[in-house]
């Protein structure tokens, strides 16, 4: 059974349906990516999985239990963490406070301390400037912090919403390498991206969304070779 399973999910903002019946599955240890242009419904799907907006129809199952009726904080406690779109750091709070907020749902002080060291180990710049407000950091550094903050809940499933958004190519590379490292540590990742090339070269599987529906779903390698994907997202003629 898959770790995360989404069945016929429909989500609406008022009367506007953003997601019109999506089904997807993430296996333990996999990196799965959701591709698509703006407005395809990728972020909405993530928000719904993490309980920030309720679905209209459909179910979300995590480790064999239904979670689509649970409030967001209980879902975090079950082991799903999200680095939201646009990073949404607490800009006036220090790096360390941001990271500790990522661990808000945890009670094990020792574990939090260990994970704090782990995140600082991954991103050295965060350690050396840990008392500074997050808003003073560069875009790439803020993205590191956003990923680190999501990692602080020690999640079983990490959902990253467009981590490369607004970053320089070099920074994008660095962030993608970090995601690769997390993958090799065995973290299960659901990755939403517009940068299809970068995402597919990391992922095991990929889903392509268009206006709220899944139009393609295959292994990442196959998608990279698929003509339609190449034309629409990879800029090939």
């Amino acid at each position: 059974m898959a770790m995360l399973e989404v069945k016929d999910l429909e989500v609406a903002y008022g009367r506007v349906k953003a997601v019109k019946g999506i089904s997807l599955a993430v296996e333990q240890g996999q990196v799965v990516t959701l591709l698509g242009i703006n407005g395809a419904g990728k972020s909405t799907t993530l928000r719904c999985i993490s309980g920030l907006i309720p679905p209209v129809v459909g179910e979300v199952w995590f480790e064999g239990e239904r979670i689509d009726k649970l409030p967001a904080h209980k879902i975090v406690r079950r082991g799903i963490a999200q680095s939201p779109e646009g990073r949404r750091l607490f800009k006036n709070m220090s790096v360390e406070d941001n990271l500790l907020l990522g661990a808000f749902s945890r009670q094990d002080a020792d574990g939090v301390k260990r994970d704090l060291d782990r995140v600082y180990g991954m991103f050295d710049v965060l350690r050396s400037r840990r008392h500074e407000p997050a808003g003073l950091f560069s875009g790439g550094e803020q993205q590191m912090l956003a990923i680190g903050r999501a990692m602080m809940s020690n999640p079983k499933l990490l959902m990253l919403d467009e981590p490369s958004m607004g970053l320089s190519p070099i920074m994008t590379q660095l962030i993608m390498r970090t995601i690769g490292e997390l993958q090799s540590e065995g973290v299960t990742i659901l990755l939403v991206e517009q940068n299809a090339q970068a995402a597919l070269s990391l992922a095991d599987r990929g889903y392509v969304l268009e206006v709220g529906r899944i139009v393609l779903c295959d292994s990442a390698a196959n998608l990279l070779g698929d003509d339609r994907v190449r034309q629409a997202y990879l800029g090939a003629d």
Binding site: A72, H73, V76, P84, R88, F90, M93, G102, R149
Partner: peptide, 16 residues
Amino acid sequence: VAIREDELAAEAMGVN
């Protein structure tokens, strides 16, 4: 303070 700064982000971090 997290709620004050960004309530939705706080919620996403598991703050009730």
